[in-house]
Amino acid sequence: MRTLPVFFKKELLETWRTRRFGVLAVVFLLFALMSPLAAKLTPDLLRLSLGTAVKLPTPTSVDSWTQFYKNISQMGIYIIAILFGGTVSRELTDKTLVNLVTKGLPRWAVIIAKYLCLLGQWLVVVASAFFITWGYTTFYFSDRQSPHPIAACLPLLVFGAFFLAVVLFGSTWGRHTYEGLLFTCLVMAILFLAKLLKQAHNFNPVSLIGDNVAILQGNLSLTKLFPAMGVALGLTLILIVSSVALLNKKALV
């Protein structure tokens, strides 16, 4: 068990020194800062291009949060997939695990440490982005149309836990970063296709990043998404266990 913290520390150091965490943090902070701004300015920008005659509704806090969830679910998670898509496969191509494993580092510790490190980074950047957007949204929009910001963010955090497990499994399965990315895109495509099945909506992990604004406004209860959270967390567990099994079978040299 003592090997896990050691490898975890190595992972933290790596993500810091390769500047991956820095890039991730800056991008998510920019999303957080620009969401309220974009919501506030969109009507003015439209008026500039379409002329002053166009009647547009005044933006509300809901628009600001819509921008936030759109930015994170349409760009943020793919940036994560690109940045961390090589987390296992790069170690295998560079043969950097050979020395550690022959000196007694169990392979499961590699996967668990990598996953915990990814999850930690995700929680830190999303929570910071969330609080910044919350602050600016209350600053720029003094309406009461978004009564449940925390309940709306919770499904996003759970989805992240699932998405990172997909990225990790893809990276373990693929021989190259791009194969891992392909796997991640494939999983997302299947989940979006499954969205067409209306009955499965509350069980589909993708609903966790699609229904946030409805929860925020109070149009949808968070409890409706509990099945999707259960499915997402179950799949997370399966993906992590399969990653360990896969890595156990892989040749390191």
């Binding site: 890039v23 800056v26 902070l29 920019l30 800062l33 701004l37």
Partner: peptide
């Protein structure tokens, strides 16, 4: 209040 941090982050990066 928004533009300044955005500019700092962009230029810093």
């Amino acid at each position: 209040p928004t533009l300044l941090p955005v500019a700092i982050l962009e230029v810093g990066l």
